[in-house]
Design a protein around this nucleic acid. Structure first.
Lengths: 350, 350
DNA sequence: TGTTAGCACTCGAATTGGTTGAGTGCTAAC
DNA sequence: GTTAGCACTCAACCAATTCGAGTGCTAACA
């Protein structure tokens, strides 16, 4: 059996109405559509075929049909393909800037705000990861004496992300020693990516410095800590409550598990990092349906991810989590516009 | 009518069993308790009285009784009074340290961890506010040249909380100018509390400095920004999913509203700041039942707050949100132990 | 006077049975 | 290949019924 033109049309009709209503779709509903002029009986035959092909499912004998994961998949693929064609015409129309985003300054706040706005606009749960700094380079590094017993290490990496670390010392450093340290640190580390700063390098630095070893050790440890904390990926979430708005997810147990995942930043990070590369399609937008999602808890959900770029090579991800019957079209469009908007914001800023 | 000894006992029995079961408590259940030897009929009479006094409620004619807010109130007050008496004996027994908290270093992470552990231990939703820095003093302040067009302002306040701010400049400052600035800033601002740094002060500083006004303006603005951002209160939440575990809150609408509040940090802050001062009782623990909670959305919940002290005068709050029939005893004990533990951690640390 | 046994009563919750109607699959005719 | 028609299925809904936990009240008892 083949999926001919007509079957496809019927399938799309089923899915579309199911997305709208959330209830199983019967043959009569479809037959009444003006688009394709067929009796309910014919539709029934076709629907039986579609079920055999695995695109739709009957919850019970005397009910209408709902899309299977495979059905959604087909639908989404189709949609994405269409979007790819329409691309040029639309490109110009997305000028309206979101006032909510414009005035935010600090990256953390911006990303949190992005998650919030997105959740508000789509009515789904959202998450935004901070960009991965591993590939960014150290721009500036500085030790200062805060008080008798404490040094402060400040590290700025490209993208103007700032990390701080307090370092305890037994006794204050002399001014010229501090200066020496700063010169040393800067000359060695500036321009390196965080990835390239490793123990080996530190060793050679130590040899070069040739100063009181214990103190040195301590300070380097602190600096390394700061570097490491810059690598830590932050995740911002919003709209968790939206999950409860969809009855198919709203049962207390499932919803509770989902919420738990949304709180568990590590899991989230893994989740969103395990989604494929943006190279897969021209918008960097990917759709995971049901079992395709990387986490078991989300098997009743769909996940749509997009990639934004803070600057060359420094990327973060945006994710939207909703029921399988989410409004894929709207979500994809919104994400597309949003990433564009972020692009312009970042390009003007940095 | 009076609330005599026996009535009180019965009331407590009703509340206790209701806390455990979550279902209306009938007269027979109480009469079977070994503690007070009375027939169900007598209990019924007493319960009728208790209802008239407003301590318990009958959901419908042929059901048992559940506590009213007033009933809970009485129960909690009683409990707190008892705890106050038992205080000394217990004091020594709370030595077991929570391994999960010991190794955390940065304050943000520690507080987040506190929220998490607390949520895990109690099965309620939790929130922890970062301490209020308004009263803390500036310890250290520094401007550095990061690159051609950017200055970095770093401010450290007591409690070792660090704030950063990037400041754009048209052209790089000369080294001696920068030095001058730093001296100026430090001499004026160090030792002041964040509250005391205001426009007036800035004005006098400007006059003193007497340099190119525009640049100055810019820099001060940046510094002020950093100061302001230090004032911003952070709130860490955890265990939001626990809300769904209690049927009386689990209906989709209410739960959704609650979750929304938990996400809205500003609202949370207001909420927890509006709770009274810790002076009210010796543990700094307060219980808000039903309508007593400061937010309408929480009228079906109870809120228990505690205060911790990072150092003299620098305090934050911890809140636990659960159903009205939460296990007050456990919650209060847990909070008491936790604040003690935090005390020892902070005293060893700083 | 306080306590208790007994009893009629109430009312939500659970069970049952019947009805409805949306939807199906199949067959036969067009 | 399409469609009208028909028998069939089954969740959803509703009403009637039962069940039982719990009540309030009264009368008897200590």
């Amino acid at each position: 059996m083949e999926l001919d033109e007509r079957k496809l049309k019927i399938l799309q009709a089923v899915i579309k109405t199911y997305l709208e209503t959330g209830e199983p779709v019967g043959s009569r509903t479809i037959s009444k559509m003006p688009d394709l002029n067929l009796s309910s009986a014919t539709i029934r035959n076709e629907m039986a075929d579609l079920e055999e092909l695995g695109y739709i499912i009957q919850p019970h004998t005397s009910a209408g049909r709902i899309p299977s994961d495979a059905g959604y998949r087909l639908y989404v693929d189709q949609m994405m393909a269409e979007k790819a064609l329409k691309r040029e015409e639309e490109e110009e129309r997305q000028e309206e800037h979101d006032a909510l985003l414009a005035k935010v300054d600090r990256l953390e706040h911006l990303l949190q705000q992005v998650a919030k706005v997105l959740a508000y606009n789509t009515n789904y749960a959202t998450m935004v990861t901070a960009p991965n700094y591993k590939n960014t380079k150290v721009k500036f590094i500085q030790l200062s004496q805060v008080d008798e017993q404490q040094l402060l290490a400040v590290i700025v990496v490209e993208g103007n992300v700032i990390k701080n670390k307090m370092i305890k010392v037994e006794e204050p450093l002399a001014n010229d020693e501090l200066l020496k340290f700063n010169v040393l640190l800067n000359s060695f580390l500036t321009g390196l990516s965080l990835q390239e700063i490793n123990l080996e390098l530190i060793q050679t630095m130590k040899q070069q410095a040739g100063m009181h070893a214990v103190l040195l050790e301590h300070i380097f440890e602190g600096v390394m800590d700061a570097v490491r904390s810059a690598e830590e990926l932050e995740v911002y979430t919003s709209g968790a409550n939206n999950i409860l708005k969809y009855p198919e997810l709203g049962d207390a147990n499932k919803a509770s598990e989902l919420l738990e995942v949304l709180e568990e930043k590590k899991a989230l990070n893994q989740l969103i990092e395990s989604t494929g590369d943006d190279a897969d399609n021209q918008y960097g937008i990917q759709v995971y349906i049901g079992d395709e999602t990387p986490i078991q808890t989300m098997n009743d959900c769909s996940l749509v991810t997009a990639t934004y770029e803070l600057e060359e090579g420094v990327r973060g991800k945006i994710g939207i989590i909703g029921p399988k019957r989410m409004d894929y079209d709207k979500v994809v469009t919104t994400l597309k516009n949003l990433t564009n908007e972020l692009d312009t914001i970042f390009k003007n800023k940095t």
